[in-house]
């Protein structure tokens, strides 16, 4: 039983990693006032760029670099539409998701001729797991051994990075000048403007951070969690991340826990397939799968707590005529 739990938690960490990265990406965007339902597209685009570059150059790190470049470029397109041209944030996000869904397959087919997939990645083209010192030696120690060697050790670097970014994000948002301005611009851009700070510049910077984080999430999917790019491999993770962002009420640490919860549900769903639960029978996998979405809907409707978005989110900033 305990071992099962450890295994589920271990899987939770792995499934949650891209969610945490993407949700934090969304957090920076929305805290600056930009709604980003294009997280999905950025993850997918980054996953493709990472796998493609890793396949060509044989290095996961170069893949990561390209993932970040691709994702930041998409984030900047979103910024260009929403910040510079006062476009509708949702429409722009839908556009980016659609373009990327088509473009990855189109380019993939042309470049690799494998029906839109990238070649399977091996060796240095993937991020491999890092084994902590003495992990094997301690594996047999009861309880702690299992936690240390199974749960904590043996993940790839991006997993550790994702969890390290959470406190870093807290620090940026609450302790730095940029963070103060970021939070201000999502609440009242007029106040920021009259304080002599460029609203657009802050928002663009937020979008770049958003792009970098989505780049990490995408690279994780195709070069760490999997060994190559598959069509539509982001599979709604961007939307779950968005749900987690709402669930965590736009604050980094609660957002991380929301991602862990959703990741846990995912891990459980996989485990529950075909399992008879005493007294209930077989719980359909789909019922667990939809829980993140159902929970988010309930939260938004105010049935469980209340989620208040940054006040200026989704609204283009236009200087008022005095």
């Amino acid at each position: 039983m305990f071992e099962t739990l450890i295994l589920i938690l271990d899987a939770t960490l792995r499934v949650s990693t891209p969610l945490i990265l993407a949700a934090l990406a969304g957090l920076f965007a929305e805290r600056s006032g930009i709604v980003d339902i294009g997280l999905e597209g950025k993850i997918l685009g980054a996953a493709f760029a990472a796998a493609a570059a890793a396949a060509v150059f044989g290095s996961a790190w170069i893949g990561l670099l390209f993932a970040i470049i691709a994702s930041v470029a998409l984030a900047l397109i979103h910024g260009f539409a929403c910040i510079t041209h006062r476009g509708d944030h949702i429409v722009s996000g839908v556009a980016i998701n659609t373009i990327v869904a088509g473009l990855t397959v189109t380019l993939g087919l042309d470049w690799f001729s494998q029906g839109g997939q990238t070649p399977a990645l091996t060796g240095d083209a993937r991020f491999t797991s890092i084994t902590f010192p003495f992990a094997d030696a301690l594996a047999d120690v009861p309880v702690i051994g299992l936690i240390y060697s199974e749960l904590l050790s043996g993940h790839n670097i991006l997993v550790y990075l994702a969890f390290a970014i959470v406190p870093f994000a807290v620090w940026i948002i609450y302790k730095t000048r940029f963070g103060l301005r970021l939070r201000a611009v999502g609440e009242n851009p007029h106040a920021v403007d009259t304080a002599g700070i460029s609203v657009a510049f802050i928002r663009y910077r937020a979008m770049i951070i958003c792009g970098i984080l989505c780049g990490l999430a995408g690279a994780y999917l195709s070069t760490a969690h999997n060994a190559g790019f598959l069509k539509d491999m982001s599979a709604g993770k961007g939307y779950i991340a968005l749900a987690a962002l709402i669930f965590g009420k736009w604050r980094p640490v609660p957002v991380m826990f929301a991602c862990l919860l959703f990741g846990f549900l995912d891990a459980v769903a996989v485990r529950m397939q075909g399992v008879q639960v005493p007294g209930i029978g077989e719980v359909p996998v789909q019922a667990i799968e939809v829980l993140p979405y159902v929970l988010t809907v309930l939260l938004l409707a105010g049935f469980i707590g209340k989620a208040v978005a940054p006040k200026a989110v989704g609204r283009p900033y236009v200087k008022e005529r005095g």
Binding site: A95, I96, T98, I99, S113
Partner: peptide, 21 residues
């Protein structure tokens, strides 16, 4: 060497240009 997905790209671009931009 061209996939039918090219249409999805065009569709996305239409949303981008006639919607977001």
């Amino acid at each position: 060497s061209i996939t039918p997905e090219i249409v999805v790209v065009i569709q996305g671009l239409v949303i981008l240009f006639s919607g977001a931009l």
